[in-house]
Design a protein around this nucleic acid. Structure first.
Lengths: 204, 204
DNA sequence: GTCTATATAAGGATAGAC
DNA sequence: GTCTATCCTTATATAGAC
């Protein structure tokens, strides 16, 4: 098998992956049939199995590709020794937001359909997410120790950073009214302001 | 049919609803079979149909029950004429958080599985959510007009308020480390502080 | 590598005895 | 109201011709 044959196969496989990811997002993993994927790729369902091993493999590819990209980005921030923790958090937050703006299919499938992974991938995937959240919590604690993030329970702050981006799913349906830049800056502003060490919030 | 027979039927139906909602959350709507529900209720699958019309009816009940509860609570806040918009938003946010803490099964099913509703319920459900988000945006704009919420794009702020609570899903798996009260106050603090009209955030 | 045909399992829902 | 038995559809995946 020469190189061009290999490349063609990879292109085909990548097309299947792209179609499948979109359908998994639109209809859900369990409600998406191999026939649905095959229809949009333009072949019969049986032909898909010349390129992939199973439907589950497509889900694995999506989930671990995203997990890898997110983990690598976080590692970059962790190693920016000259940066403040708050700056690292803002960079991570902006990475999350841009992923949800530019790669919505993949992040939604990884977020919502990941629970349908089979073992041992399910366990590995959930452990990886747990580690990821711990690492973000660690940056938050560093920021508090250095005094440029206000003292508070770090766990809810981490959850907020992890979850804020989810609203972007709604934004995609009405993209015209608010620009991607305004959306990103607006979200970042709420969160980062909420972390500043300024004792100015008085309950009524 | 006397009153006690009616009540017994409703109790049974309510039990089926409760079991189904939990399974829909744990396994997803499509991956939950009538046989799964029946097993936990303690009857055969066929017997369920003496109490409910279809599996889809259980999903409808969950989604619209939640939509109704949320809409009514928002209406209460809208009619608190003496309150500041920021106070209304905090009350709404706390209602969301408590729902995600105390009724996680139902809110998760309504949020994640609602897309599997059949027509015309799907359209009605999505329109209702759209209206709900518009109403929250309206309160935010009121707060800006009155000067007790900082001027900014209202749309990302609304998304943040809608989405912050989603992290609570993770909290339920490790309930011991942070109390429900600390979680609620921690989440509220980040968001509400991020809305205050204090020009103290300078980008580096 | 793609096709047709099919194996095998599971799904929601119904019929009819009790 | 609950049961057993079953209808009918759909699902993933495989076999084997071309």
């Amino acid at each position: 098998m020469n190189r061009s044959a290999n490349q063609k196969m990879n292109i085909r496989k990548e097309e299947i992956y792209r179609v499948a990811t979109r359908l998994f997002r639109e209809k859900g993993y369990n409600a998406t049939g191999m026939r649905d994927i095959a229809l949009e790729v333009g072949v019969e369902a049986a032909s898909l199995y010349n390129h992939i091993r199973s439907k589950s493999e497509l889900l694995q590819q999506c989930c671990f590709r995203m997990a890898g990209d997110f983990s690598r980005q976080l590692e970059e921030q962790e190693q920016r020794n000259s940066a403040l923790a708050l700056e690292k958090l803002e960079a991570v937050l902006r990475f999350h937001i841009r992923a949800w703006i530019n790669r919505l299919d993949e992040v939604l499938v990884a977020t919502h359909e990941g629970k349908y992974l089979e073992e041992p991938w399910l366990t590995e995937f959930m452990q990886e997410r747990r580690r990821y959240m711990k690492r973000i919590e660690h940056i938050i604690i560093q920021g508090m120790d250095h005094g440029h993030i206000r003292r508070a329970e770090p766990y809810p702050i981490m959850l907020t950073i992890m979850s804020t981006v989810r609203g972007i799913e709604f934004w995609h349906r009405k993209q015209q009214e608010v620009s991607a830049t305004d959306l990103e800056d607006g979200l970042v502003d709420v969160i980062i302001r909420g972390l500043l060490p300024i004792p100015s919030y008085h309950r009524s």
